[in-house]
Design a protein around this nucleic acid. Structure first.
Lengths: 175, 175
DNA sequence: TTCATTTGCCGAATGTTGTTCTGCATTTTT
DNA sequence: AAAAATGCAGAACAACATTCGGCAAATGAA
């Protein structure tokens, strides 16, 4: 008789450390996720189903978070980009600032040097909208001060790349 | 007889200012580009071919730059994120810094407040790799100084959103 | 070592989806 | 008012994703 557990794994699948093929696939998909599995397979030297299975695994493992359309800020009417450094007082007070993350204008929120300092990436229509945003920001409790760096020109903007420059960790620069 | 110009437009297609349906489509694709045109059509109230045509137009217009896979930094071995402010001297000297954009660790390069100050978004394996990167950066001519903000925790990170908060420009905060 | 299990892959078959085409109604232009 | 262009829906087609079965290599246990 067939036991109910026959189809279950004894051990959870151990995470594999991303071989060269995985990285090639990730790199290609990070550049353009609209390629077919057949084309992708020819690039890395695999069949379409094989690539498909690897992509599914990379998805499950979280290496691929999602596939999204990259929009042009100006084309959607957002001509004003800035990085806002926020200096907040006390712990746990930054939670209020996080509420601003509900605004579609806020694209990134990072904690830096402790829990009381933040970097925000904000893209708005124009300078007036930026002022409106900063007004909202100032009125959050715990915000002691901000510093806004207005972007005049974006020379490059892309997502996480799969490739790694190993020379950076080789430390050949140490005398 | 059919003239050769019969299939050519007299006037180039005038750019349309993104109606509500376009913005809905862009918003959906920015969140998840793997939806089918049929589903997308049900959301916005159009047929699949109609949505397809709009997406093609949005692509041609540049509103959709590309569709890409969003990778997880830690999953690809990059556990260290930082924003590097670069103070460079003179004009045109920043061109050397742009060469660092060839490194897959550099994700963004923005000019701020003039041509002599930059913000870099850099994601590397670890602190040692960060040191290696900064070493390279320092040896570019024109780099007078840098300030690195190490990210301890990323609370949000997403691409350009299609939605716009019109309250920000209404100026109701002006007394 | 030897056997059993798992893993990763391929080729073929299937189903879903993207894409094109035709026609129609509406809008815009001349 | 006539003519051209636009945007959309339904149907037909082509391409692709996805599943399946089988095989060989790698892995783990005895």
């Amino acid at each position: 008789m067939v036991k109910e557990t026959d189809n279950l794994r004894q051990n959870p699948p151990r995470e594999r450390p991303l071989d060269a093929l995985d990285r090639k696939i990730l790199g290609a998909l990070a550049r353009d996720a609209s390629v077919s599995y057949a084309e992708l397979g020819k690039d890395v030297g695999l069949s379409a189903p094989a690539v498909h299975e690897r992509v599914k695994r990379l998805r499950r493992a979280g290496a691929i978070e999602k596939t999204m359309a990259q929009l042009n800020g100006a084309a959607v009417g957002k001509h004003f980009l800035a990085f806002v450094h926020v200096e907040s007082s006390g712990w746990g007070k930054t939670k209020e600032v996080f509420e601003l993350g509900e605004l579609p204008e806020v694209e990134e929120i990072h904690s830096i040097t402790g829990d009381s300092s933040l970097i925000l990436k904000v893209r708005v229509e124009n300078a007036q909208a930026m002022e409106g945003f900063l007004w909202r920001l100032y009125h959050k409790t715990g915000v002691r001060g901000t510093h806004t760096y207005v972007v005049l020109n974006t020379h490059m903007e892309r997502g996480v790349q799969a490739e790694i420059t190993h020379e950076l960790t080789e430390g050949e620069h140490v005398k």
